[in-house]
Nucleic acid binder design. Sequence first.
DNA 1: CCTCCTATATAACTAATGTTATATTATATA
DNA 2: TATATAATATAACATTAGTTATATAGGAGG
Lengths: 199, 199
Amino acid sequence: MNQPSVYSYSQIIDAAFDLIREKGWMGVTTRAIANKIGCSTMPIYSHVNSVDELEKALRQKARELLKEFQQHRYTEHVLLNLAFGYVVFARDEKNLFRFLYMEKPDQVDLEDVAGMKDKFYREFSENSEEVKAFWELKSSGQEALVQYTWIFTHGLAMLVNSGALGSYSDEKILQLLMNAGEAFYLWGIQKEGNGNENK
Amino acid sequence: MNQPSVYSYSQIIDAAFDLIREKGWMGVTTRAIANKIGCSTMPIYSHVNSVDELEKALRQKARELLKEFQQHRYTEHVLLNLAFGYVVFARDEKNLFRFLYMEKPDQVDLEDVAGMKDKFYREFSENSEEVKAFWELKSSGQEALVQYTWIFTHGLAMLVNSGALGSYSDEKILQLLMNAGEAFYLWGIQKEGNGNENK
DNA sequence: CCTCCTATATAACTAATGTTATATTATATA
DNA sequence: TATATAATATAACATTAGTTATATAGGAGG
């Protein structure tokens, strides 16, 4: 190549990413990115074909950060860690969470959201030693437990994100998630005891 | 007055409301409203000072429709009706739900969201005959039940709205809500039996 | 029937945004 | 060192939005 780029691709992505965190997706414009870097808008277009393309890259980056939140070992329970990380991400990275799941519901990667349920399930299964009780449930009960926990987690994340529940500490969030999980587990056990499999 | 208005306030509000339902809030522009009614943009400004003001009126109208969804007597249980109506609203009025709770999280009426919890609690209390078991719980257990149910309901509404759970029938939604409520109730009973009030 | 008055229509203004055309500048290569 | 080329800056273009200035027209009041 003849000319080396003064401004790198990652520099542009990073600037845009910071803008989302600070002002939300609505704050991300070509001019705002350029201004943050201290250049014109042209270097952006030399690394990216359009803002739509930029948005996709940013969604991926945001999902990667969310994954970090979820993979942290807060507790011994992998399922709880996934849920807790999700809620804390929603609380501490408000604009990123909104960017991913709220501001543009049509462009939400449904694979991603729906896949979270499967992820829960998979991770949970692979760490059976940690939560032996889980395996006392029949298959349908297991699936229900995971699904209900995921619904609860998602609701908690949304409410914590919007501030509708006031400010929630790590401890409060953990307690809520553990209680809900316990409740769903108890329900599953009792249901199976009564013999009626699926209503 | 000298001249009667050709276009009424409610005509404008209704047109804008329909636009939200069809295309979401992003589809609501002064020109789009005018086009729907078949007039210019001026009649809008003769009834409303700005689009911000229009938006407030639309939020109120949307909340009123949500209230209708929630006040319908689907079942004998008022609490269940409130939750079910909320989820069905999220499912069947996707754009209105997004307008109220997702697209602009900063402008969500937090009183409204937080108040939903209290509303649950109030309505529930006033209809004690219907769910006598509720009163077997201590006060803290009651509050927890309502709060957890509300979190679960909100999560379910969000997921149903985004389509992440596929299409959900009335029956499925009802079943989910009843199961979750049952689970939270069982958990409350068991917790109190064990004597440990709060953690 | 005439004259205002005001609701409405038309058109313009402003601001913001994505994108592109053109100018400029710096550097790799001859 | 000179030239060409590609990266970047500058500036313009197109579109869209809210809003407002001006023109028009149609009915109320005399």
